[in-house]
């Protein structure tokens, strides 16, 4: 039953290599097998030194985003049968490579930290729960599903040329709190994202929307932030070189 497929995998070990290369592995594939299981097969049977992150193997922990046959995807949720006979895997872009498919996500997380990614309520944390209607909660439905995988960030062309651009995930997170009926820090939040490396840097390329495995739709979230900023006539803090 097993059908053999060819995996071309990006390799780079900074300790020993000057330049990256692609290694080719032949992997016997069962029906239902995922790309992550194929990588496990390689690591367990063919080449133990292959480095990649993994944990939940069910698309919820955000460890395994990588570039698979032309698109950023979660390796653990990608069925091999949906891909061609030859599969090419690369690490995420716009971040330094630690080894093979493992990239340094520090810039991604630093940008998340920059937008104050936590609830800022107007009242003290006391007593029972804050009331939130089902409709108010429904607005958050997909936005709170972000697993911080970085696929959107790697796919975004703007992140490629502006090192300081906050990027889709951090901006979507801003909207997640802005639109939470319990959060009372609208102006502060919008001020954090309305400079030249914030929402107005987004060129609406829809890459993030296309790749996001959780349908967070950062593009729509960014559009809402822009609308809110314009509606409030906040003054974007652009410097001259910015635009």
């Amino acid at each position: 039953m097993a059908e053999t497929k060819t995996f071309k995998v990006f390799r780079f070990n900074p300790q020993t290599d000057k330049k990256h290369r692609f290694d080719t592995f032949k992997v016997p594939c069962r029906p239902g097998m995922t790309v992550l299981q194929a990588l496990n097969y390689v690591q367990e049977n063919l080449d133990g030194s292959l480095a990649y992150r993994s944990s939940c193997r069910e698309g919820i922990c955000g460890s395994c985003a990588m570039h698979i046959n032309g698109k950023y995807r979660l390796a653990c949720e990608t069925q091999i049968s949906h891909l061609s006979a030859s599969i090419t895997i690369r690490p995420m872009a716009h971040m330094d490579i630690i080894r093979d498919l493992v990239v340094d996500m520090t810039p991604f997380f630093e940008k998340l930290k920059a937008i104050k990614p936590y609830l800022i309520p107007g009242d003290p944390d006391e007593g029972a729960e804050r009331i939130q209607t089902q409709d108010e909660r429904a607005y958050l439905d997909y936005i709170v599903d972000c697993i911080l995988c970085g696929a959107c960030y790697a796919s975004c062309a703007v992140n490629g040329y502006d090192d300081e651009y906050l990027g889709p995930a951090a901006l979507a997170k801003t909207n997640r709190f802005l639109m939470d009926s319990r959060d009372k820090a609208d102006e502060q939040r919008l001020a954090l994202v309305c400079d030249e490396h914030g929402v107005f840097r987004c060129h609406t390329l829809f890459n993030c929307q296309t790749v996001c495995p959780k349908n967070v739709d950062p593009t729509a979230n960014i559009a809402n932030l822009k609308r809110q900023i314009i509606a409030r006539q906040l003054n974007p803090g652009f410097s001259k070189k910015g635009i």
Binding site: D125, E126, I131, Q134, E136, R182
Partner: peptide
């Protein structure tokens, strides 16, 4: 502890009267 998680921003699903 549950109320605390809610106060910290956990987006629990809600009842018709807006409770957890």
């Amino acid at each position: 502890r549950i109320y605390e998680l809610e106060h910290w921003g956990a987006p629990f699903s809600r009842t018709e009267d807006g409770r957890i």
